[in-house]
Amino acid sequence: MLQAFKYYISQAFSSVFRNKLMVIISVSTLIFCMLLLGLAIAFGVNLGYISNQLESQFEIHAFVDLSYTEEAARALEPSVQGIVGIADAKFCTKEEALASLQEMLDHSNALAGLEEDNPLQFSYKITLKNIRDAGSVETALAAIPGIESVSNRTDILGGISTFTSIARNISIFGMIIFAFIAVFIISNTIKLTLMARKKEIEIMKSVGATNAFIRSPFIIEGGIVGLIGGVISFIPAYFGYSSVVAWWQGWAGSFGMFDLAPVSQLSSIFLSVFIIAGIAIGALGSMLSVRKYLEI
């Protein structure tokens, strides 16, 4: 058994070295395929990662009519609290609103003097039990007399989800097409090996080698080509994603927006998925060709 396995491996490796050109072509196609797969993974993982961040920050602001006094505004609390799906509703005075606005503007003096005649509204900051209820809670809030307007970030959340899922679907589609091309090219590489070793295979058959014994080196050869493609693909995927994250932190970090999934998390996913997918595509390609061209 061990003897046979050693034989398969040595045959597979020597064949990879013999067919360098076809191996290079197969590996290049695989790299394309893997990078698209990587893109799909990056979008998918970040979709989840960003949604989680936005959900934890998510709150609805319900603004009270400007004509209301503080007392009248506070009197709305029972109606607000009564809405189904609300986890907590916190009353926010004009002063608090001004303070947080100032904080957002880095304590600049642009708002100086407004304390005397505060133009901001009383409001309620509402957190939800489940972000899915955002729509119905907003409608219910808007229906309360005295609530002038309702704002939230569902639009941002929705926009990001739609963008990432479209991007992910496009990259998955591209990946599938390239996977087919990779399987086709690898099966041709293996076909060349089979042709080159036709005589050897005939002799193997005549002395009673089993089909599995004849096929295994070719399938392992496909797997090796796939493994090489997978490992090489990891390099551009790793550096590509690292630079996207670095750029995002520099650009979006200053706006206090969400973060992207960390490089360490993505790189371990890239490496494991690329290796597994590469070997699978390679082995599948050679299996198809061995089945087709190796009538035993």
Partner: peptide, 11 residues
């Protein structure tokens, strides 16, 4: 020896 190898004979 090839004829023996391919049917899994020991070294």
């Amino acid at each position: 020896s090839f004829a023996m190898e391919v049917i899994g004979a020991s070294k």
